[in-house]
Computed example of a mutant assay.
Amino acid sequence: MRISTQLLYNNNLHSMQNGAAELGNLLQKMSNGKNIQRPSDDPIGAVQVLTVQRDQAATSQFVDNIGALSDSLDRNESYLTSMIDLQNRMREIVTSAGNGTLSPEDREAYADELETLKDAMVDLANAKDDKGNYLFAGNSTTTAPIQLDGAGNYVYKGDNKTREVQVSDSTWITANSHGEDLFFSGGGKDIFNALDDYVEVLRDPTLSPGNPGFDVEQKSMMASLDDALTSISAAVTTIGGRQNSLSLIETSHQDMMLFNKQLVGEVEGLDYAEAQSRYQSSLVALQVTQESFVKISQLSLFNEM
């Protein structure tokens, strides 16, 4: 077989280029700490890393959803707890107002305070989140849930729908409580209209405990308070349960994200000691190839004739 000078030259040049490329690849790996720079470096490992990274991104989104939902539930719980505080004071007043020894002036003073508490209750029921959405209007978040109709009665203007937030592959958590359940689900009057009717009775100097007209409204007012307090307390309890679930799910997600991070590190992470050893070997090989190339480029087969 005849071997030309050009063939020796090309073979040496090819070896030198491969050596330089190997060194460059090793330097890139050492600079970013990743053993897989492209899928061809490790096809199976590259697919595994992509799969884990996709799962990691989805889990990260679930964690973000949990954070936002938890904040929203905290806000709901805060307003509902304030409503309970108002109702506890209302109950004290209604109980005291049933005392037959009170004067009409005393009942008038209680009426004034109940009106103030009712207005505060309406404000809480019409509370908004940081984006201006009504919290207790169901999915009608741009509509104030508690309004007065043309006859001066309080009515619910929201809907009875709830919003679900996905917090894992298979878990959705309810994000809101609507006003129909909270205020208008009892068997008697809702708390807002019951307060209006009761205040009117307290302001009537001809009515007092023992009078049928007074006693009927007194009983109706207590029943409305019981209904509202039961509904709102149940909502607060439900929120607490949701928060506990979110906490457990978030912990599970964080553990999985940590595991995935470690797994990716094991698959694509670089063994620096091995890489340094390979780098030194490749550098020596390249230097030898370069020296040979210089000598070969100066030779001709005719020199041996």
Score class of each variant (00 low, 15 high):
Q87M: 10
E291N: 13
S292K: 00
S103N: 08
I146D: 04
V47Q: 09
Y154A: 03
N303Q: 15
I36Y: 03
I173Q: 02
R38L: 01
Q37I: 09
S40H: 02
V199L: 02
V94T: 02
R54T: 10
T101M: 05
D159Y: 08
A20P: 00
S224G: 07
Q147E: 08
D271F: 12
N76V: 03
T162G: 13
S4T: 12
A194I: 05
A223F: 00
L248K: 14
F183L: 03
M1Q: 14
S15Y: 09
D119C: 01
L263D: 11
K128Q: 15
Q243S: 11
N12H: 11
V63M: 09
E274T: 15
D85F: 02
I66T: 06
T238P: 00
Q87R: 03
E22R: 10
V165Y: 03
L27F: 05
S247W: 10
A111R: 00
Y79E: 05
E268G: 08
A46V: 10
S252A: 15
L102S: 04
E77Q: 08
K261S: 15
A120F: 01
Q87E: 06
K161G: 09
R242E: 12
E105H: 02
R2E: 07
D41K: 05
V201N: 01
V216L: 12
K261D: 15
H14V: 00
A46S: 15
L27M: 10
S224N: 00
V49A: 02
L258P: 11
D169V: 05
A228F: 06
D159Q: 09
M16R: 09
F184E: 05
A57S: 14
T143P: 00
A120E: 06
M90R: 06
N65T: 13
A125N: 10
V167R: 00
N10K: 14
E200L: 04
D42S: 11
A285D: 13
Y110N: 11
P104A: 07
S297M: 12
D41C: 01
P43W: 04
Y110P: 04
N211Y: 04
V122S: 09
D85G: 02
A109W: 01
E180V: 02
Y110M: 14
V216A: 15
D227N: 15
G269Q: 14
I191H: 10
A46K: 05
S282K: 03
S170Y: 13
E217H: 07
Q262F: 04
R107Q: 07
G98H: 02
L207V: 01
N244G: 14
V49D: 07
N244R: 04
N11S: 12
T230R: 14
V94H: 06
G240A: 15
V167F: 03
F214K: 07
M121K: 02
T116N: 14
L283R: 03
D271A: 10
G152H: 01
R203I: 01
T59F: 06
Q147L: 02
A223P: 09
N193E: 10
D181G: 13
L286I: 00
F214Q: 08
G187F: 02
D41P: 07
L86C: 01
P205G: 00
S72A: 13
N12G: 15
N126L: 09
S277G: 13
R75A: 08
D226F: 01
G24K: 08
Q28Y: 13
A175M: 10
L102I: 05
E217K: 14
M1I: 00
Q17E: 10
V236D: 14
P43S: 07
K29E: 05
Y279N: 02
N35W: 00
R54F: 11
L263E: 11
N211R: 03
M30T: 10
F214A: 13
